[in-house]
């Protein structure tokens, strides 16, 4: 058991940069500027309930959309040949190698009122057509600086984290189990519903975790794609540490509450997964 010392560097790292900051966050959350213990940080939070609502609603929307897009993609990909799978995986990962901000700026210029999409629609005469049919005076579709644009940014940035775990779980399902289900009389739909989908749930659960958590705490997206109109938790917390509203105590308290809510949600979801289908969450 001497080898356990090999883990020492990471244990030290974790203590210094994971556990210690967490303790600091807790201490900050329960103290005021003078250093006295207080619960004011939490009672003051009521003002920010809309930020909580926006963050969770948009993150849930992004997660659901990621499942709807990512699951079928992962499912059909798992049945393709090795070559197709390799190329597709590469394409799915490719955007992740590009800087996050750069990708988001690209979306800004795509979604802008004078952006790529609107210019394209104008050039093919889409607006003229619509205007001549409905008698309207449509010059562009407003997409940038909306909540929809924020959700789009989340989906675009985090979709690979949904596809990859689902794909790897579906890919590992023993083909004989599927044949066994067919053999016992299940048609294609039933094989999927009663065998493939339940067996792929662990992948969906880890995908949800990996999409939902970064989505709920994201901060740059709402400013860049949402025009700063929708205050999200990530922005709110950032403001408490770096912005004009400097108040690390309140920021810590918000961060702590967000963490607890996320933990509770994950716990409920994992329990649901186990109870319903008897799968162990990876």
């Amino acid at each position: 058991m001497k080898n356990k010392w090999l883990a020492a560097p990471y244990v030290v790292w974790m203590a210094l940069f994971v556990v210690a900051p967490l303790i600091l966050v807790v201490i900050f959350a329960f103290t005021d500027k003078a250093g006295g213990i207080t619960l004011d940080n939490f009672s003051n939070m009521a003002t920010y309930i809309p930020a909580f609502q926006h963050s969770f609603v948009l993150a849930i929307a992004a997660t659901v959309i990621c499942i709807l897009i990512g699951y079928p993609l992962a499912y059909f990909l798992s049945r393709e040949s090795l070559m197709v799978r390799k190329v597709a995986m590469m394409l799915i990962m490719l955007p992740m190698w590009m800087n996050f901000l750069l990708r988001t700026y690209a979306w800004m210029s795509i979604l802008d009122d004078n952006g790529l999409i609107n210019q394209f629609l104008a050039n093919i005469g889409f607006f003229n057509l619509i205007n001549s049919i409905f008698g309207t005076n449509l010059q562009y579709i407003h997409m940038i600086n909306t909540q929809g644009a924020i959700v789009l940014g989340m989906v675009y940035n985090f979709l690979p984290f949904m596809v990859l775990p689902i794909f790897s779980v579906i890919d590992k399902i023993d083909h004989r189990v599927i044949e066994a289900a067919q053999d016992l009389g299940a048609n294609g739909t039933m094989v999927f519903r009663k065998v493939i989908f339940p067996l792929s749930l662990p992948g969906v659960l880890s995908g949800v975790t990996m999409v939902f958590i970064p989505s709920v705490s994201t901060f740059a997206l709402s400013r860049l794609l949402g025009g700063g109109k929708t205050l999200l938790l990530g922005d709110l917390i950032e403001m408490q540490f770096l912005g004009n509203a400097y108040n690390p105590h309140l920021g810590s308290a918000i961060a702590l509450v967000m963490m607890v809510i996320v933990l509770v949600m994950m716990a409920i979801m994992n329990r649901f997964g186990e109870g319903e289908e008897g799968v162990a969450v990876l």
């Binding site: 023993d174 004989r176 189990v177 066994a180 067919q182 053999d183 299940a186």
Partner: peptide, 16 residues
């Protein structure tokens, strides 16, 4: 397979 009146016991069982 699902319309045949035969059933299979698979190698390595293939249980759900």
């Amino acid at each position: 397979p699902h319309k045949r009146k035969v059933n299979t016991v698979f190698q390595k069982y293939a249980l759900f």
